[in-house]
């Protein structure tokens, strides 16, 4: 029924990259995330699945404090990145986001050239010593984004002129260019066709060798294909978290089973 999970590749690293404990998120009065505990491993793809409105995107956005931009949003609990609390008042959310990159649901290239899109992060964080250095960073990022061959001859054409799938890979390249340690992806393939989706999925598998990747997805097949760990959210609760193969073949919670067999959601 499902594609074979990508479990054959042995997880290289068992260190815990992000540890969340007792996380509560409120939007004004609404209690969006209820007491979530989850540990995300380094060099692993972790998938968040669940029906719409279950809080998986909200939880993803707490991991790099993107929720700070929403006035009415309030986060409680502890989220540790490499053992440091990211909600500590001494932490600068701007620096945190440089370490925890994010790719969004809809491709959102800036209205700049392809080159400038990718160079944006390195320029802001001063990662390049000179022009040649920056060129190298951009090329490396575009290669990692699996889009170099398509755009190498038109680096100075506007990024908005690319197709949807190319735009999304450009956005991934842009996120990779700042050398993050964790990459958060919020339904990165929901606006893409099947071919572009499979390209992006291959890319995610590639990225796993360097980063810890957290992906929110609506497609259970996609979760099964790309992830090693899966977390199932329902109504703001983390229902079940475990190895992808176990979640899809032998779920412990009846709600998880109902969801993956298509009875709820």
């Amino acid at each position: 029924m499902y594609d074979q999970p990508a479990l054959e590749k042995k997880l290289d690293n068992d260190t815990i990259k992000i540890a969340a404990s007792g996380v509560q998120v409120y939007y004004g009065e609404a209690h969006a995330i209820k007491d979530v505990n989850v540990q995300i491993q380094d060099k692993t793809v972790t998938a968040f699945i669940g029906p719409s409105g279950c809080g998986k995107s909200t939880f993803l956005r707490t991991l790099n404090r993107m929720n700070d931009t929403i006035d009415i949003c309030r986060v409680e609990g502890k989220i540790l990145l490499d053992g440091e609390d990211i909600y500590d008042p001494r932490v600068d959310p701007v620096q945190l986001r440089a370490k925890v990159g994010m790719v969004f649901q809809k491709p959102n290239p800036f209205p700049k050239s392809i080159y400038d899109n990718v160079a944006y992060g390195p320029r802001i964080h001063g990662l390049a010593k000179n022009k040649a250095d920056l060129d190298e960073i951009v090329e490396k990022a575009l290669r990692r984004g699996a889009i170099w061959n398509e755009v190498k001859d038109r680096l100075h054409a506007p990024g908005t002129g690319l197709s949807g799938g190319q735009q999304q890979r450009l956005c991934i390249a842009r996120a990779v260019a700042t050398e993050p340690e964790v990459l958060l992806m919020d339904e990165p393939c929901s606006a893409l066709d099947p071919i572009a989706t499979s390209q992006v999925e291959e890319l995610i598998d590639e990225l796993r060798t360097n980063y810890s990747v957290v992906i929110v997805t609506h497609s259970m097949q996609q979760a099964a294909r790309v992830s090693q760990k899966t977390a199932f959210f329902h109504l703001g609760n983390l229902v079940e978290f475990g190895d992808t193969s176990q979640i899809f073949t032998n779920p412990k919670d009846p709600r998880t089973e109902s969801y993956i067999t298509g009875r709820i959601g």
Binding site: M66, L96, R97, V103, F104, K106, N108, Y120, R174
Partner: peptide, 11 residues
Amino acid sequence: SLRDGSLGLGA
């Protein structure tokens, strides 16, 4: 989405 994209890169 453009603002989010930029903020998400640590700007």
